[in-house]
Computed example of a mutant assay.
Amino acid sequence: MQEIKRRYVIPGDKIVEGDYKPLMNVVRSGNYLISTRVGIAEAGKDGVKVIPLSGVYIPRVNDLVIGKVVDRSSLSWDVHINSCFFAHLPAQDVFGRDFSPARDDMGRQLSIGDLIIARIVSFDRTRDPMLTVQDKDLGKIPYGEFIKISPTRVPRLIGKRGSMIQTIEQATQTRVIIGQNGIVVVTGRDIDGLSLAVKAIKMVEDESHTTNLTHRVKTLLNVQDPVEIEQSENTNISSNDGSDLVSSEKSNISSDSSSNTSSNVDSSTFEQTSNTEQQQQNSSTFEQTSNTEQQQQNSSTFEQTSNTEQQQQNSSKLDFANTQQIEEKQPENNLHSDSTDSDQKEEKPE
């Protein structure tokens, strides 16, 4: 299949030849797809379409539109939806099926000048569009900043998969309600955020046909692209690596000097410790020697004392023996003397 490049077309231009599905503002003529509007032709997975650069809004079923209540009748409100057709909102859609014009006050729900967001439920060129507010997030818009842009700029404002409008909402802290009819309402609490969001929407409307619009909008909103963030992170990492390298070199130098100093200190400390240990060993050896000598002296003294006591005991035993011998000799002497005396007496009478 032929490759389709994004390009500008006018009504009647041949966009592409081949088996492609015609989408918005594109018709088939023979084997060619022909543009019916002034705009930008592009191809997607679904087919070929032309994004118009100008034109009025033509209502379509299921479109979400923002309109202004301009009049009312006994059964409905007339709503201006920025088109050549006026839309109608039935009163039964607001009050229910039991609506009664005599009993229910329509002005209590919607007044002339109120803004509403609604969905188109039916439309053909023979009658005006019919609206409903029964779905979620539909109904009266109580407040907000009202902006009117060209309906052909709405797809560019939304962006692919809603990327553009999400960027604006996240950067400005606002909520942007977009109608397919070119009416935009911006709500938010911050006035600066509201004004910045309005500037971004105006930029998209004025420059939607130019390239690099997303980048310019992000620059306006001070939003960085992921590529820029990655580049800045890489720059920070490289700068941090350089500073880390310098700091590591400094730390290595300081660690070397500190290690040298610590080694000197450790060596001196080791020497002091060795001297102390040597002194302690010498003192312990001296103490042991002193204790040994003391023990030897004590043992010699004890031996001398024991010998002296033994000698004393022996001398006392000897004295006792001598004494006993002397005592034994004295009775013998006495006996001898007695016998002698008796002999002498006996000799005298003779």
Rank of each mutant, 00 (worst) to 15 (best):
Q344Y: 08
S243M: 13
Q296F: 08
Q92D: 05
S283C: 00
S54D: 07
Y8M: 11
G159M: 10
T285G: 04
A91V: 04
G47D: 13
E207S: 06
N291H: 04
F146G: 01
I51M: 13
F270Y: 09
S316A: 10
S315C: 05
Q324I: 07
G242M: 13
V204T: 03
I149N: 00
F123M: 08
D98E: 11
Q173I: 03
I51S: 05
R37H: 05
E169R: 15
D63L: 05
P151Q: 03
P331F: 14
E228V: 03
L53M: 12
S150M: 03
Q180S: 01
M130R: 15
V246R: 13
D266V: 07
S247H: 10
F86P: 00
K348A: 09
F302D: 14
P349N: 12
K348M: 10
E303N: 15
L318P: 00
T323K: 09
D63F: 06
H88W: 02
T172K: 12
Q134T: 13
S251H: 09
Q330P: 01
S73G: 10
N282C: 01
C84N: 06
Q313Y: 03
V223N: 04
I116H: 05
I10N: 05
G39C: 12
S257D: 00
D71Y: 04
S315E: 11
T269I: 05
E277G: 02
K140H: 05
Y57P: 01
F86T: 12
P331R: 15
Q170K: 15
S122E: 11
D135V: 09
A102Y: 06
L213A: 09
V265G: 00
Q109P: 01
V154W: 00
I81M: 04
Q279A: 00
V61F: 01
I51P: 02
S111Q: 13
K68Q: 04
N222C: 06
V154P: 03
D338V: 09
L75A: 11
V61Y: 02
P11T: 02
K5V: 13
C84A: 03
E230R: 12
P226I: 06
D13I: 05
I183G: 00
S258I: 03
N275W: 04
I141D: 02
D104V: 07
F286Q: 12
E328Y: 14
V176P: 03
Q294I: 10
Q224F: 08
I237H: 09
V26N: 07
F320I: 03
I178N: 00
V176W: 01
K218R: 15
Q134S: 14
F123H: 07
N322Y: 10
V50D: 01
S300G: 04
D241M: 15
E249K: 14
A41Q: 09
T323I: 05
S238L: 14
R97C: 00
V184G: 05
D341K: 15
Q294T: 14
M164G: 00
E228N: 02
V246G: 01
G113N: 08
A87F: 02
N334T: 08
I15E: 01
N236P: 05
I112K: 10
M24H: 08
F270R: 15
Y8W: 06
S73I: 01
G47H: 14
L335C: 01
I191R: 15
I15M: 09
T305I: 11
F146I: 12
T289A: 12
N282K: 06
